[in-house]
Amino acid sequence: MAKFNEHIQLGEPVLPAKGIEKALQAGALKDQRIIALLEDMGFPGIDWWTENMPERMVEVGIAEQNGAVVAGALAAEGFIPVLYSFLFANVGRALNQVRQSILVDRFNVKIIGREGAWGEVGISHNTIEGVGFSRVLPNLIILNPADVVEAEKATEAMLQYHGPVLLRQESSPTPVRVFTDDYPFNIGKAYSVKDGTDATIIATGYMLTEAIAAAELLEDEGLDVGVLDMCTLKPLDDAAIIEAARRTGAIVTAENASIIGGLGEGVAAVLCENLPAPLVRVGIEDEFSQSGLITPERDDLKIHFGLRAEDLVVSVKVCIAKKERSRCRD
């Protein structure tokens, strides 16, 4: 059994959306400036909002470009709009409006992007390229929580922070509960789930579940592999990445998103400029998502894209072999 750090207590699968709902409701009760901005896609805990705060819900319909402009205008008047829809729509379709009406003036708008990875809605809505097209936007913080607890903490921190934030919501597959209730979440700070000496898996979002399982499988084979949770995809925690490379000398990144423009490329840039180390990027290659059967028991897309713990095990071994080869050359 692998030894995990403080604040880790593995549990059953729970939808991260539950944590987002809880934090949004608590935030709305505390701060009257928070407005739910809907784009014909509901809202986390919509029944609670309809019953308790109907005057603080604005439905803009399937008009996401308009939604981004309305959000910017509400923020300019001192409100804190929470814009909720599919990531391909509320940022992807409205990219120009998000850029011009929210980010340029750094308005205090919160965006929750559903199906930032994939869900049952299929290829048209699964936005695996969403992290890539969002990371290039200045002034935007990007959060990608790994479980229900981190989703709640990240949503709470998002509402506390003054400025634009994108929160990528995992809809499926459902990650296991990883963190304890007193887990100290901090925007921009990675959290070491497990220390290791042979390699480090830097995981984000759902892939933390698979990274933990991979580290346990590797321990059975005598390899001591660390796991670093990188919830904040922008700005990345450069210091934690460099420290992981210094300590283990081999880095594997894990994301259920395109490897282009995502966590892997961000980590690669940090390593190349500071402490070059062997790296393997695990994610989705240069392709669009697919439609597939997704249930708690079976996730066709996770298998299709090679994102299971067993796949990560192979990548960690490849990375450790790269490290050994580079030592031989030295």
Partner: peptide
Amino acid sequence: CDMLLYFGE
């Protein structure tokens, strides 16, 4: 407490 208060340009 090290909370991030601003990130941007």
